[in-house]
Amino acid sequence: MTQTIDTNTVKHVATLVRLGISEEEAQKFSGQFSSIIDYFNMLNEVDTENVTPASDIANAENVLREDVVKPSMSHEEFIKNAPKSERGYVKVPTVLGEE
């Protein structure tokens, strides 16, 4: 079975990952995604009826520590990489709009 991922689906997932996308790109990706996902469908052959999904890879135990304040990067240093800042805050346009 060939599973096609149409351009609308591509545009939808682009929205989910906050990625601007042109019509041309959506068409290109649509074809590529279909063949990749089609290949991945081979996993359907595997019987995983009683298999527990892997959730950890190394240390199965939770790691806890005391909640103690330690020195960290200064505010001044931290804000240095922000493209726009004002009075020590990261500056961005409207977050909550009227939509």
Partner: peptide, 26 residues
């Protein structure tokens, strides 16, 4: 990242992401 969002999205999570985590156990 788009394929990741696809594999994690509603309706496909079980078929792709969860399935892959199960085969990872194997």
């Amino acid at each position: 990242i788009m394929l990741g969002a696809y594999a994690l999205s509603a309706g496909y999570y079980d078929a792709y992401y969860l399935k892959a985590q199960k085969v990872r156990t194997l």
